[in-house]
Amino acid sequence: MSSQSVLDVVQLHKSFVLHNIDGRRVDALTGVDLHVNVGEHVALAGSSGAGKSSLLKCIYRTYTPTSGDVILTDTDGTRLALSALGEREMVMVRGRRLGYVSQFLRAQPRRTPMDIVTAAGILRGTDVTTARVLAMEALDRLRLDKGLWDVHTSVLSGGERQRVNLAAGTISPPRLLLLDEPVSALDPANRTAALDVIADLSAQGVAVLSVFHDLEAMERLASRIVVMRDGRIESDGPPIEILSTLRAVAR
């Protein structure tokens, strides 16, 4: 891979052994090879159950890979084998280098959007004052009503929470950001704003690996689209090419 490589996934396998359902084995990933470069936005496509989310979770170590390597190359060229990293080291990597934005906000109900987004900035090494400024910018760009910045997230709607989640995920962005359906609950206007924020990440050199359920988002954001099927990569190419195939299949 070139020196611009951020993520290298090599022959990644993931199987679940369900000990309490007669030891059944379920294969989620069956040998995935994938590379993501600096500033690249790679969108994962494929039907549900194809292994897109499993791949993101294996990279983030929410799932423990069964075999294969996940390597994150840091700014100075250090290659971190995430799949083999100790737990505390992994917690540290998750702080500054690797981010994950899921469909749902996972935060304590009694914290405010401002707190949550500021804390995310601090976690990635930004000082408190700067983090507050960046948090305000992020919430503003994602069009969260100012009147909601200091209320508990428990009173927010699904769409509002999703924007808080995205603001927290993109403030002082990490080197590699994993996005799993981050705009699924947004109405068109807010969705456009959110996609703009994500597009900017690529301009800042952040490597993004994403899962979107709609082709428009991929078209707007992806520099490359990887199609998965049955736990492995089926095709990998420029968006125009892949999207036309996908649209043809959809029709």
Partner: peptide, 22 residues
Amino acid sequence: EHGLTDQLLEDPAHPYSQRLVG
């Protein structure tokens, strides 16, 4: 079993962990 908390909750490996999480 030991692990990252989200991993233990989403991908518990040991039969006992799986039973607890389940």
